[in-house]
Design a protein around this nucleic acid. Structure first.
Lengths: 116, 116
DNA sequence: ACCTATTTGTCCGTATGTATG
DNA sequence: CCATACATACGGACAAATAGG
């Protein structure tokens, strides 16, 4: 199943939709070049509002995961070059910045704690 | 004038609002710690919809320029491209990626530990 | 060149929920 | 408890880009 949302979940619907797509991409069930269902169609399938789906798609676009354009729809651009590698890159950037600012390891731990 | 929009412009209203705030910050007329008018108030002043202002505020938050929170409003956190704001932006990116990949908080702590 | 259908983009309005003070 | 303020979701309307006939 490409999408699925749980109306009872506390997580916002638009986030659930975005998460669904990310999961499919991560699992390789959605690959580069593939087209996502139109927002209208997805909304109909999930029985949620068109705008809610559009918001999810726009989030994915901001993350660089899909190419979303008027009149065309949404096409997967990246299969998330993923996992640990990407995570390590971000950690390296973060630590470098922390050093520059004078933040300690504990400061970062704290920040991440609250961010989660 | 803190905000101004031109209804005739082709630029989206929410972008015009965000741009206004950025300009004020850049010019030093809005400084760290200062509070922006509530979205409702700003919308009333500009004679545009509440959601349009909220969208602009949320964009600024994503950029790390303001701290926007429920029940509190919007407070300027920048200008400070290399300070805490920047750090927070990186943390946010990292955590978002971690979620995407399925990494836990402890995984991140561990990674940072070894990076330090 | 034109027309039409599809699809996203923006904006407005309304309602309800949740966090803050 | 109450007022304020943002968050989410739904709905409607129109605009603009795209694709296809």
């Amino acid at each position: 199943m490409l999408f699925s949302v749980d109306p009872a979940s506390s997580a916002p619907l638009h986030e659930q939709v975005a998460a669904s797509v990310r999961r499919e991409m991560g699992a390789g069930r959605l690959r580069r070049g593939e087209r996502l269902p139109s927002a209208k169609e997805a909304a109909s399938l999930l029985d949620i509002n068109l705008h809610t789906v559009l918001r999810a798609y726009q989030t994915l676009r901001d993350e660089g995961l899909i190419d979303l354009r008027r009149g065309r729809g949404a096409v997967v651009t990246a299969p998330d070059p993923t996992g640990q590698a990407r995570l390590h890159t971000l950690v390296a950037e973060l630590v470098a910045e922390a050093r520059r600012v004078g933040a300690t390891r504990d400061d970062l731990t704290q920040l991440i704690e609250s961010e989660f």
